[in-house]
Design a protein around this nucleic acid. Structure first.
Lengths: 187, 187
DNA sequence: ATGTGCATGTAACTGGTTACATGATTCG
DNA sequence: CGAATCATGTAACCAGTTACATGCACAT
């Protein structure tokens, strides 16, 4: 059965939801995105695609070429789309990484605006919790003595604050202007 | 021999550099730090400790107790300290994650202030590069069309900016006031 | 000639998780 | 009475990387 929480599989589905692609194409996209969401080597990408096909979540169109291996163009099936939607709208568990968040962020609006807003709210709550924990920890003796720890703490607080501000501003904008996509005209 | 780049092993050494601890203690510390650097399950922590001992990087003191398993207190050996120092001062490769950076940040000042400053400079250069790449990408057509992608891009830019500001301010402070720690000496 | 882009794939290895096994003590 | 904390460890499994195998076209 479809394993839950295996993020990279779902992210592949998400990319295919935007347009059919070959494994090689997916790799290229993933590489550009590597800073935010991490990449994948061919050694796991191709097997992953095979598995997705096996599970009926994607279909393949073979585009034969002279001189080089046929391009295999993968497309999302109906059940693939469904699995993706379920995954995206699943509440994230305890402490998701930044990468996991960005993945969902990038895929969420394939479905509903509401789902995306939910993601943002969830993230806000999680970051706020972590920020509070960090702040509290700043009082502990270790952090006063050790420069490295103190810097790491400070770094974490700075990032958390930025993220909270960013989330607030995005949520504000989305709330004022509920459907800025698809029909976006004047901008 | 000693594998390079295996971060979690080295981070364990780094924790032991600050004080001898049991596996259980390490787990506790790691858990508190999980948001910044990620944690480790016992299933990999204990074997890692065994391997470190096997390699002569740590020693064990057994503290027998009634009713419960003996506490095994691990301490860094001389060669362990050396391996750690080499790792910390090794230049980071291409695109290190935030986690990898925070790990080094937390361990760097076990040795010299200079090493820490080098880490910060390296990080600054890397983040600046990534930021530039993101900005450039913002011009691409996908990002205008797709709300999720646009948000992810914007998020990345916000985080990068914060990080650059933070790095600059820390470097400024360290430069003005080279030894802000108690007792920290040159070597 | 050398490397990069195109395009697919497999096999060996690595580094991790989850689940299991054991078992007293203390807190709610 | 059940859960969490203390304290160690192993075995099965999983997802990923690295290195390998193939091979043409095009730019430097």
């Amino acid at each position: 059965m479809a394993s839950n929480s295996v993020s990279s599989r779902h992210f592949i589905l998400g990319l295919l939801a935007q347009q059919p692609m070959t494994g090689y194409d997916i790799k290229r996209v993933l590489k550009r995105l590597s800073w935010l969401v991490g990449s994948l080597s061919f050694g796991s990408l191709y097997p992953a695609l095979h598995a997705l096909k096996e599970d009926g979540l994607v279909t393949v169109d073979v585009d034969a070429q002279e001189d080089r291996p046929s391009r295999k163009i993968y497309s999302l099936t109906q059940s693939g789309r469904q699995v993706l939607e379920e995954w995206v709208n699943q509440p994230t568990r305890s402490n998701p990484s930044m990468k996991a968040f960005v993945m969902r962020l990038m895929l969420a609006d394939n479905f509903s605006q509401a789902g995306l807003i939910t993601q943002l709210h969830q993230r806000r709550a999680q970051v706020a919790t972590q920020r509070a924990a960090l702040e509290q920890r700043g009082a502990a003796p270790d952090y006063k003595v050790n420069l490295g720890r103190r810097l790491a703490l400070d770094y974490g607080l700075a990032l958390a604050d930025t993220e909270l501000d960013w989330l607030d501003s995005v949520l504000d904008r989305l709330f004022e202007e509920p459907l800025p996509m698809e029909g976006v005209q004047g901008g």
